[in-house]
Design a binder for these strands. Structure first.
Lengths: 203, 203
DNA sequence: AAGTGATATAACCAAATGGTTAAACCAAAG
DNA sequence: CTTTGGTTTAACCATTTGGTTATATCACTT
């Protein structure tokens, strides 16, 4: 499936990703990371000088992947709705692989806002695509309904992300109603997100 | 605003709530809790035997408040849409006071699923209201559109909760578009949730 | 004023944690 | 075979962490 180089460095990074995502910077234990990577704890410091440095690498990678999904918006050749649908597809692929990542990013930013300011500026400049601006332009051209684009953006993301974040809750909640989470995620949810987009944007 | 008894026990619980919500069980430090409560660390153990016990109290309280919102559904005298609107109002009041709580619950359940199984069963039995079942009944009576009720439930919660969870992200993201988070949350978001309910359920 | 029980604190302890070091391993080059 | 370089490990260290204890303080009763 995914490429596995299996170098020591990658084993560490994968283990660190797992542990940091679950417990956050403060809650994570270097020994746990070493155990999962099946290496000696000292190797962590050999490859990444400190816990903070290792965390920084993991967090940067997460943030990069998170914003990478927006690349599809650069493709101005596609009609806006197609781009949005493709974006939703991207998000779902991403969320299925890293269901915890958006929460990880949100949590760590909440704890240490500085992590964000520095890094995001760099990413933003690299991409240079202004998603809400694009939607506003489409409205000006009359291609979509006249809506509050920022609000639409928030709502669309909510519909996509929250089901994955809250999966532990929903899994249990649905079972109480003799329904299975697997029947809902991700196929049906993706459908209903696209429905929401369709209904909200159609003139 | 909220009643403040200001007993030592409450000071500790409030401090613990703050720290546990931010850092989780593993990430939280007893000394931090003591500092915020402005008491000696030993007092923590005097009132609550251990870190786990203190956490348990905080977590139980959070879970209780979280599910308490659903009480409005017991009031069968109101038409279903009124009940849903009232429920949304409740959620927003709750989320404005405890924006981190749903993430706290979700995170801790993800780490330690056992916490959930034991406690939720008790809560569920106390309430005895089956929300999705109520919606299904309303469909049978022809009061609302024939929809997938569980999916509707998930979507509605997503629209309510995620904006609060992801506030740190949105705050920053909106500023980049010269818009302010305060212009969107919570008034406009609540409106659009109710719009979503209206559109989705109307026959 | 003296006694009493609950409340609070400083000082302490053992275990865990992030981090270091010196020595061992091991593949490739000479 | 020996050397050389990067890689890996066991043993260790200083600090932090959750938790305990002995002592002090305070509110209240007698």
């Amino acid at each position: 499936m995914t490429k596995i180089k299996d170098t020591t460095e990658e084993k560490i990074l994968n283990a660190a990703k797992e542990v940091f995502m679950k417990y956050g910077l403060y809650g994570a234990r270097m020994q746990d990371i070493a155990d999962i990577a099946k290496i000696n704890k000292a190797l962590l410091h050999y490859y990444f000088r400190s816990k903070e440095k290792l965390f920084d690498q993991v967090f940067s990678g997460a943030l990069h992947k998170y914003f990478q999904q927006m690349d599809v918006f650069s493709d101005a050749s596609l009609p806006i709705k197609e781009r949005l649908f493709k974006y939703v597809d991207n998000i779902f692929v991403f969320l299925e692989e890293y269901p915890q990542m958006s929460m990880f990013i949100i949590k760590e930013i909440g704890i240490n806002p500085d992590l964000f300011k520095d890094r995001v500026e760099a990413i933003k400049k690299n991409k240079g695509v202004n998603l809400i601006k694009i939607l506003d332009e489409e409205i000006a051209r009359g291609n979509i309904k006249k809506i509050d684009t920022a609000l639409f953006w928030i709502n669309m993301h909510s519909l996509c992300s929250y089901p994955f974040l809250a999966a532990p809750l929903f899994k249990h909640g649905l079972k109480a109603h003799h329904k299975e989470w697997s029947d809902y995620s991700p196929v049906k949810i993706k459908q209903s997100v696209k429905q929401f987009i369709e209904k909200t944007l159609s003139v």
